[in-house]
Amino acid sequence: MNEEILFAREDETERPSSLDDGVDSQKYLIFMAAHLKLGVVAEDVVEILNNQVITYLPMVPDYIRGIINMRGQMIPILDICARMGMPSRERDSLVVVLNLGEVQLGILVDGVDQMLDIPKANIHPLPANSTQVLVSGMCSLPEGAGTMMVLDCEQLIPNE
């Protein structure tokens, strides 16, 4: 169901975009977290949910808000703002459920911006002395829509 929505969006966004066709590119889902635009590879996105009741889980780091029940599956929810060291929002926001290899993870975001095809060449590394965590690259969005930071999903999963 969600995939259909995603593809529909892609059709809308692909044509007006000024990016060259036929270049080695990847689709990104861009969402808002605090003042940042963050992007994740669209393939990793399972579903976007809202109005979820999150069950609080004790004894875990603060950035884990708890777990939700998605059709019988327990999905841990990360407050991405808190995880990246920004002040976390209290208000209910959207959950983007990601499938990262074996792990399914939901991240709390403020809103979904757009879906965009971005050539790999357009993604630049962070400045060498940047202290930014969880980001693997940056990319200027077309039509002056700002800058997207590519979320490094691998880093979300704690390595044993």
Binding site: M59, V60, I64, I67, I68, M74, P76, V103, E160
Partner: peptide, 29 residues
């Protein structure tokens, strides 16, 4: 079972062993 991600924070050592769905769809630990 709790998601493996959650278990990686050793919640089991604090007696948090699993979860179950309640009849209204909410989760009990």
């Amino acid at each position: 079972q709790l998601p493996a991600y959650v278990n990686s924070f050793n919640v089991k050592n604090y007696g948090i062993n699993g979860c179950t769905l309640r009849s209204d769809g909410s989760i009990s630990i």
